[in-house]
Structure formats: C-alpha cells, structure tokens
Computed example of a mutant assay.
Amino acid sequence: MEIYLIRHTTPVLEPGLIYGRTDLALHTDFPIELEAVKKKLDIDFDIVYSSPAFRCTELARALSLGFTTDLRLQELDFGEWEGKTWDTVDQIALQQWMDDYVHACVPGGESMMQMHSRVAAFWQELLQSDFKKVAIVTHAGVIRLILSIVRQIALKEVFDIKLAYGEVIRVDGKVPDNL
C-alpha cells in the first residue's frame, strides 16, 4: 500500500498561537500551495482521508470530492490553551508539560500518549484495508506520530521531525508482524 501523508497548507495565524483544534482560515496563497502539493502527487487515490479541521478539508476536497474525515486525524487537543499564545499560558504548567509532553496532559486537553493511541488505532485499521493508494491530509503532530510508528522513533524524539506546510511524505503501509 502506498500512503501519502500530506500536511495542510499555510493557515492564517498570529505568531506563537496555540492552535491544535482551533479552526483557522487558509493563507491567501492556498491556490499556489495547492498546485505545489498536486505536483508532488500526480496519483489517483483509492481513498483520501482528512482531519475534520478546515485547513485540512479544503486541501482534501481539492484532491478528492469524496474524501472521508476521521476524528482520529485531529491535531493534539491543547484544551485550555487553544487560541492562546505560548507566552500567555501559565508558565509553570507549560514547563511541566514541556518536561514530559509524552505523558503530561495539557490542562483540559490530551497527552501525546493519548493522541498516539487514537492515531495508532487509525493506522492499524488502515493497514488492514485493501486500499492500494491512500492520501491522508492532516497535521504535523499526526504525521509525526505515524512516522514514529513506521520508522520506530521514540515519542520523545518526534519533534526532531521537521514538516513544512504542504509537505508530502510517501510511506509504505506494511502490516507489522505484531498487529
């Protein structure tokens, strides 16, 4: 199975904004970024999955009118921090989260381990399907977690994976022996 992990294009946001689940408009360069993404693909997909966030569904819609949204492809839930900026949240709570973002929950949100569980469930289900060519339009956090599964990267190291807006990464969907 060929799987294309596609990060959404550039959203409109203020510097330092915390926007895991916050819905954002797309930058006015969306048509240009869309064409750049399409040039990287040139594939007819059996299915296109998307996070339900607007910044993902607009790109997914441009790739396939029949795309499917899946809640498990949402970005990390930043809970009480959603829509705030990093410098305005409780700095003690922020430091506690940054010291152990894999296990610590954002106030009112989720931990990376919780997010990993839902993304891994989606991934395992996908690998059991009969699709040959799949596109997944989602967020940097979700892509990092999928890559952590595929490449066996420790969760504490996933932020070492740098992803640009509109980036496309092709992976082979192979069912591991322990599934």
Rank of each mutant, 00 (worst) to 15 (best):
E2V: 03
Y4A: 12
I6W: 00
I6G: 01
H8G: 01
H8P: 01
T9W: 00
T9Y: 02
T10W: 00
T10L: 00
T10F: 00
L13I: 13
G16N: 08
I18W: 14
Y19V: 03
Y19R: 08
G20M: 05
D23N: 15
L24W: 04
A25C: 10
A25K: 10
L26M: 06
H27E: 13
T28N: 12
T28H: 08
F30R: 10
I32C: 12
E33G: 01
L34Y: 15
L34Q: 15
K38V: 12
K39F: 10
K40R: 14
L41S: 13
D42Q: 08
D44I: 14
F45Y: 09
D46T: 06
V48H: 07
S50W: 02
S51K: 03
S51F: 07
P52A: 06
A53D: 03
R55I: 06
C56R: 04
T57S: 11
L59Q: 13
A60K: 05
A62W: 02
A62K: 02
L63Y: 01
L63E: 00
S64T: 06
G66P: 00
L71Q: 12
E80N: 03
W81E: 10
E82D: 08
G83D: 06
T85V: 08
W86H: 01
W86K: 02
T88G: 07
T88V: 10
D90K: 03
D90I: 03
Q91C: 03
Q96Y: 05
M98C: 10
M98K: 11
D99L: 00
D99W: 03
V102N: 02
H103C: 09
V106T: 12
V106Y: 11
P107A: 00
G109S: 02
E110W: 02
E110F: 02
M112I: 15
M112W: 13
Q114S: 12
S117C: 11
S117F: 12
A121S: 15
A121C: 13
F122P: 09
Q124A: 12
L127G: 05
D130W: 03
F131C: 06
K132S: 14
K133E: 14
K133G: 04
I136A: 13
V137N: 09
V142D: 07
S148R: 08
V150D: 10
R151I: 11
R151L: 15
Q152A: 02
Q152S: 02
Q152C: 00
I153T: 12
A154W: 10
A154K: 13
L155M: 14
K156I: 07
F159G: 04
I161A: 11
A164D: 15
V168C: 08
V168L: 07
R170G: 06
V171N: 04
K174G: 11
N178V: 15
